[in-house]
């Protein structure tokens, strides 16, 4: 019988990310000649998003999806990948993958936290979904109440909007009753969480993505694999990240078309954010990076060096995409 690694997944077994995990399970069985597979526990039934990183560190699961922000102070290097504002899924995920598997600070932090990095997800670029008022310029933000997190809080408040925090599953109700006028969100979330049912407009800001979002092993579980299995898994982690980039990229394009055409008669009108609006918001959001730098320096890490390393990797992948295109095309 194959050895089934216990995998803690906080998301449902539906949608783009679940497809990626099912691919991962099949691919693992194929590449290990049936020796290794995944026993995926969906929906956070074992541990939720907030507890996942710590639980995997403690060996509650052998592997799992984590968001390092929920494990304050543990994987600070990983969190750097959320500070720059750029929309490309493939570039962001591969740069993150390389950072997490090659940067010595990242490796040291992971080792101290008793985890081994495997591969990456992304949310895709951040967009602005609004209920019944289209946002076509910065001036439209004035007086609106927008659900936002992190760097998008200063970016919206800077232009006269109010921001509130609402957890993603509750955004539906908040939009539905109008207690928020809009929400920063991502295409796959608009689809998966049915937000298109309660909002009419989507301003394509194409701002930054959440990249501090990936899969880790419990270190003991990783160490218990044979050297051949470890090699296989290292390669698979890379291939998974590429595969996930493709899934997220195509799902964004498809969801966009679907929303524009209407799902069950519910249409979302797409609005291209004007360049000056996008630029102005990105400027404010980028300034939020000082918070991360403070946190990293506070932990005794060299914030500038880490950020510099990541920026260089991003630039390299961007150049590669510009010249060669995406690997799946």
């Amino acid at each position: 019988a194959p050895r089934e690694l216990r995998f803690a997944e906080f998301g449902p077994n539906a949608g783009a990310r679940a497809g990626g995990l099912e691919w991962l399970d099949e691919e693992m069985r194929k590449r290990s000649n049936g020796e290794l597979g995944l026993d995926i526990i969906w929906g956070g039934a074992l541990v939720g998003a907030a507890g996942a990183a710590q639980a995997i560190s403690d060996g509650v699961a052998d592997m799992g999806s984590i968001v390092p922000v929920y494990a304050p102070g543990q994987l600070v290097t990983y969190e750097v990948v959320d500070t720059p504002q750029f929309p490309d899924e493939y570039v962001g995920m591969m740069a993150t993958y390389d950072l997490m598997t090659q940067n010595p600070t990242a490796l040291k932090e992971a080792e101290d936290f008793n985890v081994v990095y495997f591969g990456n997800y992304t949310t895709g670029p951040t967009q602005l979904l609004t209920r019944d008022k289209p946002v076509k310029s910065l001036a439209d933000l004035e007086g609106m109440t927008i659900r936002a997190t992190g760097a998008f809080v200063p970016a919206i408040e800077g232009f006269g909007g109010a921001t509130v925090s609402v957890s993603q599953p509750n955004v539906y109700e908040a939009l539905s009753n109008g207690s928020v006028d809009g929400s920063t969100t991502y295409y796959y979330v608009v689809d998966g969480y049915k937000q298109y049912e309660v909002a009419k407009y989507m301003t394509e800001l194409n701002m930054g993505q959440t990249l501090a979002f990936g899969i880790v092993f419990n270190k003991g579980a990783y160490d218990s694999l044979t050297p051949e299995q470890q090699d296989m898994m290292n390669e698979l982690g890379h291939d998974f990240t590429v595969r996930m980039a493709e899934i997220m990229h195509t799902s964004r394009t498809e969801t966009k078309a679907k929303l524009a055409a209407g799902i069950d008669g519910k249409k979302v009108e797409m609005i291209d954010a004007p360049d000056d609006m996008r630029k102005a918001m990105i400027d404010l959001a980028e300034k939020d990076a000082v918070n991360w730098a403070e946190k990293a320096n506070g932990k005794g890490l060299d914030a500038d060096a880490v950020r510099g390393d990541f920026d260089k990797r991003v630039a390299d992948y961007q150049a590669k995409v510009d010249s060669e295109g995406y690997p799946w095309k």
Partner: peptide, 18 residues
């Protein structure tokens, strides 16, 4: 306070959920 702050001054209480 968060509800009132949002309605009256466009300023809800920061980190209220947390």
């Amino acid at each position: 306070a968060s509800v009132l702050g949002k309605e009256l001054f466009l300023r809800p209480v920061p980190d209220d959920l947390l």
